[in-house]
Simulated assay, not measured.
Amino acid sequence: MAEETLMSAALARSQSFHTFNTPQNSTNKSGNNLECRVCEDGFSLGGDKVPRLLFCGHTLCHACLLRLPTHDNNIHCPFDRQPTPIGASGVWGLKKNFALLELLERLSLSRSDAVLLPEVLVQQKELGISCDEDEDHLAVLYCTVCASHLCLECSERTHATRTLHKHKRIPLSEKPREKPRCVDHSFHPVEFVCLEEECQAAPLMCFICKDYKHTKHKHVLLEQEAERIRSTISAAIQHIKRVAQELTDSAHKLESVARQLEGPAPETAALEMSAGGTAEEARARVKQYFAQLRDQLTRQESQAMTVLDAHIRERLCSIRQQQEDMTTLLSQTYLRDWLMSPHRSNS
C-alpha cells in the first residue's frame, strides 16, 4: 500500500522518469535544483538525503529508499518497477551517485565563494580600497579572473551573466600578492625563473628577458619555482619540528632522570612522605656497606686483641715459670757450692 502511494505521488508530480527536476519548473528546498523525484527534497552530500543509485539507473534519496518495501531482498523502483537486490546491509549497501555528489559539491563551493558573513565584509571595508566599478564604494571582493576590486553590489551586477558568474571571487584580505615587476622591463611582470648557475644572482625575468637576455637557458614558471621553494621550506620546517620534538623528549627524559637522581624537593617529599632519589639511596647503601665493614673490623679487632692478650698471658706465665725454675736452679747451685766449699769441710 505504501509502495503504491509513493509511486502514484511520484507519477502525479511529473510524467518524466528523470532523477531531478529542471530549473524552469521547480525550486527545491535546498536551492540547488537537484532533488529526489519522490519526496521533492533536495539531495545533500550526506545524511538521509544522500543520493543512491538503483540498478535501473534512477536515483532516490536514502530516506525514500528506507520507506520502500522489500520483497525477497529486492527493492522495486517506484518509476519502472525494476527490482534492485539488497544485501544484509540493506539500503546502506547501495552505491551513491558520485557524479551527482560531485556536482553538489561544486555548487556548494561556488556559493561559499560568493557568500560572505557580515563581520567578514566589515573587515574587508576596513582595508579602504575603492571599488573599480564605482569609486564611491569600498571594495570587499577580489575577482581572480578579472583582477578587479569590487563591492558586493557591483560584483553581483557585473558578474550576473552566465560566463562571468563562474569567476572566482574571494575576500579582499585573501587577495594573492601581485607578481613583481621585471628589473629591466618595469611594465612587464616577472613570469619565469632562470635555472642556470650564472644567473642565480638575478634569476627572475619577464617574457622579453626570456627570449633575449636568457636565450636557450633552462627556466620554469614563477609559480612552479615558488611552489618548489614552499615545499622545500615546508619539508625543512617539518624536519625542524621533528628534531625539536625529539630534543624536547630527550630534555624531558634527562629531567626525569635528574629528578630520579636528586629526588623530590624537601617540601614535596614532606607532603608525599616519599624517600629520596636514587643518588640518596646509593649514598645510603655506601654508608651501610662501610658501616658493616667498620662493625666487622671492630669485631675482628676485638677478637685479635683477645687472642693477643691470651698469647701474652701465656708467654708471661711461661717466662715467669722459667724465671722461677732458673732461680731455684741457681739457689741449688749456690747451696751445693757452699756445702762443698773447703771452709765448710775444715769447720
Rank of each mutant, 00 (worst) to 15 (best):
T278N: 04
T278F: 00
T278W: 01
T278S: 09
A279M: 05
A279E: 07
E280D: 05
E280W: 04
E280R: 10
E280T: 13
E281T: 14
E281C: 11
E281G: 13
E281P: 01
E281I: 08
E281V: 12
A282Q: 06
A282H: 02
A282T: 08
A282P: 00
A282N: 01
A282S: 03
R283S: 06
R283A: 07
R283W: 01
R283D: 03
A284C: 09
R285M: 11
R285G: 02
R285H: 10
R285P: 00
V286H: 11
V286T: 09
V286S: 01
K287M: 07
Q288D: 07
Q288V: 00
Q288K: 07
Y289M: 08
Y289V: 10
Y289N: 11
Y289L: 14
F290N: 09
A291F: 07
A291D: 15
A291Y: 03
L293A: 05
L293C: 13
L293R: 12
L293G: 04
L293E: 12
R294P: 01
R294K: 03
R294W: 00
D295L: 09
D295W: 00
D295T: 06
Q296D: 10
Q296G: 09
T298M: 00
T298G: 04
R299I: 04
R299N: 06
R299D: 06
R299Q: 10
R299C: 05
Q300T: 03
Q300H: 01
Q300R: 05
Q300P: 00
Q300D: 05
E301F: 03
E301A: 07
E301L: 09
E301I: 03
E301Y: 01
E301K: 13
E301G: 04
S302C: 04
S302W: 01
S302Q: 07
Q303I: 02
Q303Y: 03
Q303E: 13
Q303S: 08
Q303T: 08
A304W: 08
M305N: 15
M305V: 12
M305A: 15
T306M: 04
T306S: 13
T306E: 15
T306L: 12
T306I: 04
V307T: 15
V307D: 13
V307S: 14
L308H: 07
L308G: 02
L308S: 06
D309R: 11
D309S: 10
D309A: 14
D309Y: 07
D309Q: 12
D309C: 08
A310D: 09
A310K: 12
A310W: 02
A310E: 14
H311R: 13
H311S: 11
H311A: 10
I312T: 09
I312V: 15
R313E: 11
R313Y: 10
R313G: 04
R313M: 12
E314P: 01
E314S: 14
E314Q: 14
R315A: 11
R315H: 05
R315V: 04
R315K: 15
L316P: 00
C317N: 14
C317M: 13
C317E: 11
C317P: 04
S318P: 01
I319P: 00
I319Q: 14
I319D: 06
I319W: 05
I319N: 07
I319M: 09
I319V: 14
I319S: 11
